[in-house]
Computed example of a mutant assay.
Amino acid sequence: MTIAGPSLPADLVERWGIRSSELIADTRTSLVHRVLRRDGSRAITKQLKPEGLHELSGIDFLDWRKGCGSVLVLDRRNTACLLEDAGTLMLKDYRLQHGEDAANNIILSVLGELHSTSVDAPPDSLIPLRSHFQPLFERTSREDKPDLSAALAYSASIADDLLSSQSDIRPLHGDLHHENIVSGSERGWLAIDPQGLLGDPAYDVANVFGNPDGAFADIIDPRRIIRLVDVFAPAIGCEREKILRYAIAHAGLSICWSLEGGDRISGEGNAMERFAFLNIARRLLEERAFSP
């Protein structure tokens, strides 16, 4: 570890008793450090940049969960927080060693804890699911490339229908996937980096379909898509079709985020992967290829 430097403000270094720090992520929205504290414990610090203030609802979600299925918020100061260090083993890597079914079982376990009831009222800051989907609706209205326009219009139509008929509305992690479930501490597998949303619980598994990163062949494999539908529908307590439709809706939204970040459908990045997934999932939905 390196000695804590200017990227960690002096008042936070003192307040949290930080002896040393290691930068582990510098994104458009935040700075994340793994730190060693004076008492010998390790923790994670997350500092939101101006572009990342929308992530405050995610920190509020973690605060509300109080460590149930997710990392603990140890302390907060304005747009920075001190988090439990859940470990360095990502579910993405675990899946490579132990397989898809083992990874899915962990997702189900974490999801069950995240969706469990709490005696505390959820925070008011959680973002409604329809607001979360606005980038998809806005991009669809102005997209002029025929193939992309058709795919986004299809995804947006499904999203609008789902959002108009939500059930069992509750706080959601909003970004659950193989790199946001980690382990290595005595508390086992925990979720990190939530969006902090409010909506239908079926959305909370939608991002699993497009992950893990680097598993494109699996992501577009119809057998895996159907398997995920069959695994998640009973866990959420909804029809299989609903799970697949939320996955399609999220794929369209993810394409829009990627395009805004400079990605291209013709490239080899996330936009291309989600576009390919969307088209295959659409065929499965229209053919009703999933289990009855």
Results as ranks from 00 to 15, higher is better:
Ile3Arg: 02
Ser7Gly: 01
Leu8Ser: 01
Leu8His: 01
Pro9Glu: 05
Asp11Ile: 03
Leu12Ala: 04
Leu12Val: 02
Val13Cys: 10
Val13Tyr: 01
Glu14Phe: 00
Ile18Ser: 00
Arg19Glu: 11
Ser20Asp: 10
Ser21His: 02
Ser21Asn: 03
Glu22Phe: 03
Ala25Trp: 10
Thr27Glu: 14
Arg28Asp: 11
Leu31Gly: 04
Arg34Lys: 07
Arg37Glu: 03
Asp39Trp: 03
Gly40His: 08
Ser41His: 10
Ala43Gln: 09
Ile44Glu: 09
Thr45Trp: 08
Leu48Gly: 01
Leu48Arg: 06
Glu51Ala: 12
Gly52Asn: 06
Leu62Asp: 04
Gly69Ile: 02
Ser70Asn: 08
Ser70Arg: 07
Val71Trp: 00
Asn78Ile: 00
Thr79Leu: 01
Thr79Met: 06
Asp85Asn: 09
Gly87Pro: 02
Met90Arg: 13
Leu96Met: 12
Gln97Ser: 14
Gly99Arg: 10
Glu100Cys: 13
Ala102Trp: 09
Leu111Lys: 02
Leu111Ile: 10
Glu113Gly: 12
Leu114Tyr: 06
Ser116Leu: 05
Ser116Gln: 13
Thr117Ile: 10
Thr117Glu: 15
Ser118Thr: 02
Val119His: 05
Pro123Leu: 12
Ser125Tyr: 02
Pro128Ala: 15
Leu129Ser: 07
Arg130Gly: 13
Phe133Cys: 14
Pro135Ala: 11
Pro135His: 07
Leu136Met: 11
Phe137Lys: 12
Glu138Gln: 14
Ser141Pro: 00
Glu143Asn: 06
Lys145His: 13
Asp147Lys: 09
Ser149Gln: 12
Ser149His: 09
Tyr154His: 08
Ser157Glu: 12
Leu162Phe: 03
Leu163Cys: 04
Gly174Ile: 01
Asp175Tyr: 05
Glu179Phe: 10
Glu179Leu: 11
Ile181Tyr: 08
Val182Ser: 05
Val182Phe: 09
Gly184Asp: 01
Ser185Pro: 00
Ser185Asp: 00
Gly188Trp: 07
Gly188His: 11
Ala191Ile: 08
Ala191His: 08
Leu197Ile: 00
Tyr203Val: 04
Tyr203Arg: 02
Val205Ser: 03
Asn207His: 05
Asn207Met: 06
Phe209Trp: 07
Gly210Phe: 04
Ala217Ile: 01
Asp218Arg: 13
Asp221Pro: 04
Arg223Cys: 14
Arg224Val: 12
Ile226Val: 15
Arg227Lys: 15
Asp230Leu: 13
Val231Phe: 15
Val231Met: 14
Val231Trp: 14
Ala233Asp: 05
Cys238Met: 13
Glu239Thr: 14
Tyr246Arg: 01
His250Gly: 00
Cys256Met: 07
Leu259Val: 06
Glu260Asn: 12
Asp263Ser: 06
Gly267Ser: 04
Gly267Thr: 08
Glu273Leu: 15
Phe275Gly: 04
Phe277Lys: 06
Ile280Ala: 01
Ile280Gln: 08
Leu284Glu: 08
Ala289Gly: 08
Ala289Glu: 13
Phe290His: 13
Ser291Pro: 10
